[in-house]
Each structure stands twice: as C-alpha cells, then as structure tokens.
Design a protein around this nucleic acid. Structure first.
Length: 546
RNA sequence: GGCCUUGUGGUCAAGCGGUUAAGACGGCGCCCUCUCACGGCGCAAUCCCGGGUUCGAUUCCCGGCAAGGUCACCA
C-alpha cells in the first residue's frame, strides 16, 4: 500500500513539518521544576465544583512551582458550544481567585496560541497526514449502523466491544476499495492503527495515585471525525505537547483513556506529560454514593454558591482541605498566612472519592466570615445583594450606619470572642432583617398572654433609651421580680418551684417582641441600634397583640 | 460483563510492622450565660472479610467482597 499517495489524497498540499511546529512552539523558558498546567474546559457554559476542584489543584501546582497556568478551550464538539461560555468560565473561576497566566481571552502571552481547538485545525491535519504516511492511521468508512451492529454482535458474544484487531474492518481495506469509497464521496473518519495488545500491562507512575497498572490500548480509536475535526484524544496529545504542558491534573474518569493517550503520544513521537488523576467529588445517595450529578444536585454548579452567597474564600478553603490532606492542620496552625503560602503537594492529593460535606463547608464559611471586619462584611453583602438580593434587602444599604452596627453586633466585633452567626450572604441578610423591617414572629412565646402583657407593661414603664447596658438589665430584673419571676438565675436554679420562671423568660418575651425571635445577640444593643422610639413601638405592638 | 481505581468512626482523614489508632466536621452531655452564637471540657463512634508472612499486622502478600470510574465520530 502506498501510504504517501493515500496521505496526499486525504490531505492534499503541503503542511508544515513536525520540525517546523517544534520550532514554532519551542520548549518554555522556565526555571527547573516549574510546572506548566492547564484547564481545558469545553465551552458548555456549565462550570461545576469538579472543575473548580481540578482548577485549584492545577493553579496551585503551577504557581507554587513558578510555572504557568493556561486556559485552552476544547470546542471540538460544536453541539456543546454555548455563547459566552468562555467568559462565564473565566468569571466563575476568578470569583474563586483562580487566575490564568495565558490562554483564551486572558491577554497573556500568545506564543502558544491559538487557544481554541477549532482554530488549530491545520496542526491536527498536519499530524494526521503524517500518521497516514507512516501507516499509523487509516480512513474508516463504517457507518454508525455498522458500528452499532458490531457492538451488538460483540456484546452477544460477551467480547470486549470496540473497533480493534479483527473487528477493525477498514484497517485491512484494499487500496482500490479505499479509493473507490473516496471517489464515491463516502464519508469517513480517520482511525489510529493501534499496535497495542490488550493482554499486555504497563506500569505507570501517576502523580497522585502512585504506581498503577494499565492495559495497553488496542482500539483503533477515531482521531479525526468525519467533519475533519479531531477527537479529544488526538487534540489532547498535540495541544499538550505543543503548549508544553508538564503536568496534567484531571479527573479520575480519564484514567480509562490513559492507554489511548500514551499510545497516541508514542505514535506522534512526543514525550507524554506527567499525569495526576484526582478523585471525584461524591454524594451520598441512599445506601450508596455516586458522583455529583448535574441533573440531580444543584450544589454541583458553581453558580449555586454565588447565588447562595457563599464567601468565595470559604469554598476555596474547603476545596483545599479535600484536595490536600495536610491542609487543614496547616491552616489551623497558620490562620493568618496567605493561602498561597501553603506548600501544596500533588502527592498529598486524595486517592479515593470524597463525599461532599455541606456541613463542613458551612462550618468553614462561618469561621471565614467571622474573620472579616464589619466593613468587609458589608462590602461582601452589598456585592451579593446587588445581584441576588430582593428590593427590600437592597434598601438595607441606604442605612449604612445602622447596617454596620448590626453587622458588628452579629459578628461580635470588639468583644473578646467573635460570633459566628453568618454562613452565607443570603442567610446573613435574613438574619439581620429585623433591624430594617417590622419583626415577623418566628418563635412562640413560652409565657401566656396576660403575663406577657404585664411584663411588657412593666418594661415600658421603666424603659429609658439613655440607660446603659447594666442599668437596662437591672430594670429587666425589676420587672421579673415584680411578676414573680426570679431576678437572679442562681436563685431560680436553686429553687425553681418558688418562681413562675426566671429573668431569662422575661428577656425572651422582650426579645420576641422586638425581634420576632427567641435567639438573638445582645438585646440591649439591638434596642440601642433600633432607637428608643422604634423599640417602644415594637414593644407596644407586641403588648396589643397579646 | 471486560479493564482500571479505591476501601481507617456518620463525613474528611493522620498513620505505612509494635500507637491508649491523631485531628477536624457532625451528634450527644456538661460548664459559661438573660436567649442564641462564641469559647472551654467531656462522651459515643473506625481499621471491609478470609487466608498467609511475621514473635507481632490497620500497616506487607494473596484471594474474596463492596464501592466508584470507564468501555462514542462527548469531552
């Protein structure tokens, strides 16, 4: 068979030689040990937690080592393309503090561009032609129906399915038949002529999993689709070679196609990058667990976290605790150190799929928010509210001073201990709502209506907004004593049978009257922020309702 | 089904031949306290199973089992 002639027929004309491409995309000039990593999403516009997970790993490795992180867009499947997706990806990742050094729409160096695979057609074709010349690739005219039938036959015989060995019909097509098909204009794909043997095992060193065994690839996989666009595998080999990627950190689901990639790199004469296959995020589903799924789990989409108002740093901290097992301990010891100074290690990445734990994320969120100043919290809430808040919530920002006081109170600013009342922006806005709107009663009173009336009356008679906290509380105690409630908790605990309740019950009545809730931060401060007039109005209204 | 990966409390996990088997989240209890939150103290809860190797296995080997991934002209 004259492979040269076939190559010329399939890819007429001159293409740059591999050597020319080597010169056009020279090895990067980076210090020893610097890693070049990448993110290579397909432009579906849907970016999820798994993407962020891998993104953080790749970003940390690149930047910790003084290397480069770039963004390549895998748009070889036009069915999946969504407008504006690239911008959405960049924006979503930027929110979580992932920044690229170069790549699609990044504006860094374009030495290794183009970054969109569809713009790289010439390179792929040049190498495809080369493989045909070498007899390592051939046109396959099988139709989808034929392939389906083949699969069915193999399944029935309990054989491994696929296009390989004796089942690779077009592999051994005669020269005339090929040209006859070509002349007839039959559509075809280009397949790799695999030299592998599925019986043979290869030892492979994975950067996260360590020593693993893989089976040689023996599938004549498609490298160019019938529209001339490369498949993921082929584009991956060429792009990661010429973009000079040193380490590919990707999801575990790619492990199965590693043999294909290894063979492809070999056939192309490229040295493969190092690979690290990280575990996927799982979710408990009944008795078993499964990968987080786009359809079933809203918390998979990164957009979910923006909408809920998760503090980006909290999400990042949580991802890091899952990503590197020693991160949590390091962070506990170095709470003030910038996250970038954590010695991230690929080898420390988890080997088994971790269950995504919202409780843990929430706990981290509380702690992260508790570290903010009231001003920082306000800025964070404002950013969230502008995009996701209700009109009523947006109005909170008009009374900025009051908002600041409320936030300071809920965060325990100035106190010896910070409070951790806030988990997310949306939850925080609800938490502080009573400062800005008439209280909605969320908790039930423990004491009956007549008693409530007496208590509220007693309070109103004594209340003076000029009182300091101590004087105010002394009055609350007076009200308690006057109505048969213990003024001192000590006394109540010693002999509860002597009282109708304690000062705690009295405070609760006031608390619900003013805020609608049985649990809030310091009541005196709340009244102080609200002001005397508003406080009186709320107490009076509660009295009327009783 | 074939192939690959992974199995330490409910969750994330440290450990890598000898440990009272760390720590964190969650749960429970106590203390602090006008409630909540914070904080402090404490409790319950783990080495998938079976064989080896060894004086000794959570740690090493083999075999099961279970879970996950993957078997496209999608990435």
């Amino acid at each position: 068979m004259d492979y040269k002639k076939l190559a010329e027929r399939l890819f007429p004309g001159a293409y740059p030689t591999p050597e020319e491409y080597e010169r056009r995309y020279p090895p990067r000039d980076l210090p020893a040990g610097a890693e070049v990593t990448r993110l290579a999403p397909s432009p579906t516009g849907f970016i999820h937690l798994g993407n962020l997970f891998a993104a953080i790993a790749n970003e940390r490795v690149a930047h910790r080592s003084g290397g480069v992180l770039y963004l390549r867009i895998e748009d070889t499947d036009l069915k999946r393309k969504v407008d504006g997706a690239v911008e959405a990806v960049i924006r979503a990742l930027r929110y979580f503090d992932i920044t690229f050094d170069e790549g699609a729409e990044i504006g860094g160096s374009d030495l290794y561009a183009p970054w969109y695979q569809r713009e790289r057609a010439e390179i792929y074709r040049a190498f495809a032609k080369r493989l045909v010349e070498q007899g390592r690739a051939y046109p396959c005219f099988c139709t989808e129906e034929e392939l389906a039938a083949l699969r069915e036959e193999q399944t029935a015989k309990k054989l491994v399915t696929g296009y390989y060995g004796a089942y690779a019909k077009c592999r051994s097509l005669g020269e005339e038949e090929i040209y006859r098909n070509l002349d007839a204009g039959k559509p075809y794909v280009l397949r790799l002529r695999s030299l592998g043997d599925a019986e043979k095992k290869i030892k492979f060193r994975d950067a996260v999993k360590g020593e693993i065994t893989v089976t040689e690839n023996d599938q004549d996989i498609v490298i160019l689709k019938s529209d001339g666009i490369p498949t993921y595998h082929f584009a991956h080999a060429i792009d990661d070679h010429f973009m000079r990627t040193t380490l590919v950190i990707r999801g575990e689901e790619w492990l199965a196609s590693l043999p294909i990639h290894l063979e492809l790199f070999g056939a192309l004469g490229f040295k493969p990058p190092r690979y690290g296959h990280n575990c996927s995020l799982m979710k408990q589903d009944g008795p078993t667990r499964r990968k987080l799924s786009k359809r079933k789990d809203p918390e998979l989409a990164l957009e979910f976290y923006r909408k809920e108002g998760y503090f980006p740093r909290a999400v990042k901290v949580y991802m890091l605790t899952l990503l590197n097992s020693n991160f949590e301990e390091w962070y506990l010891k170095n709470p003030e150190a910038p996250l970038e100074t954590f010695p991230y290690k690929v080898e420390k990445m988890g080997k088994s799929g971790a269950l995504f734990d919202l409780d843990k994320l929430n706990d981290i969120s509380k702690s992260e928010l508790a570290r903010l100043t009231a001003e920082e919290m306000l800025a964070f809430l404002k950013g969230w509210a502008e995009e996701f808040g209700s009109d009523a919530e947006k109005a909170y920002f008009v009374e900025e001073e009051k908002l600041l006081s409320a936030l300071s109170l809920c965060m325990g600013v100035g106190g010896k201990k910070r409070r951790k009342d806030f988990v997310t922006a949306s939850q925080a806005m609800k938490t502080i709502s009573y400062f800005f709107a008439a209280p909605v009663r969320e908790d039930e009173y423990a004491v009956d209506a007549p008693t409530r009336r007496a208590l509220l009356d007693g309070f109103l008679a004594r209340y003076d907004e000029a009182d300091d906290s101590a004087a105010w509380f002394a009055k609350v105690k007076e009200v308690a004593a006057e109505n048969g409630f213990a003024a001192e908790m000590r006394d109540f605990k010693a002999s509860p049978e002597n009282y109708r309740g304690s000062v705690a019950d009295v405070a609760e009545v006031l608390r619900i009257a003013v805020t609608g809730r049985a649990n809030t931060p310091d009541l005196w401060t709340i009244m102080h922020i609200l002001g005397g007039e508003e406080t009186r109005a709320r107490v009076a209204r509660a009295k009327e309702e009783a």
